[in-house]
Nucleic acid binder design. Structure first.
Lengths: 105, 105
DNA sequence: ACGAATCGTAAGCGACGACTTACGGTAAGT
DNA sequence: ACTTACCGTAAGTCGTCGCTTACGATTCGT
């Protein structure tokens, strides 16, 4: 649910492939698993992890379950990195300034 | 080096703690490891992973090695998430429009 | 020059996670 | 009603990763 789970979910290469396949639009499980190196149950497990992390949304339609990328989950992770980037830049500038001020003594 | 390594590096909770400690500014290994739940060698190993991922920079000064967050590495990961977010939004809008257009037939 | 401090690396161990096969459950087709 | 298709879950195996202890290398202090 939090950004930690999103990072953990995206850490796995197979799950990143799944995300890439969903970039163009929503897909059912079979279509996602088709042509991928792993079995369909494995894909199902990955989809569960991604869903629990808030990165995917599910829409059961008749026989199949259609998965889609959830912009909210991605945005949450995006905001975390934004604050990290801000802090990193600020610390970087501060360190540079400190060095320029002459920290010799 | 690539954004994949950055994600993998940030997936570990201990490494995220290290990153948080470096948000305020650069620190030597001892200061980072101090008060953390794990041993100093463990921290060293994590620092290596983070450095290899391009998230940290090292500056050996005399006796110690000072680590700092590298804005470039964070930015690389940030860009990846930005494109993912754009695609997710576009796919989301397209799916909504398709549903509004009446996909009955 | 000698002792202390700071840090990286090697080896070994335990735990978590990704994958497979097997199974059950629900919806669509005839 | 029966068969087929689609999908999630359970159990088990195997590799990988994070941690610890032990050690070696480099630098500072006196």
């Amino acid at each position: 649910m939090a950004y930690q789970d999103a990072i953990t979910a995206l850490a796995d290469p197979t799950r990143r492939v799944i995300i890439d396949r969903l970039r163009a639009g929503p897909l059912p499980v079979g279509a996602i698993a088709d042509g991928m190196g792993v079995s369909r149950p494995a894909v199902s497990q990955h989809l569960k992890v991604l869903s629990d992390a808030g990165l995917l949304s599910v829409t059961p339609t008749g026989n199949r379950r259609v998965y889609a990328i959830s912009p909210d989950g991605v945005d949450e992770l995006r905001r975390y990195l934004d604050t990290l980037w801000d802090d990193a830049l600020a610390a970087f500038a501060r360190a540079a300034e400190e060095k320029a001020k002459g920290n010799s003594t």
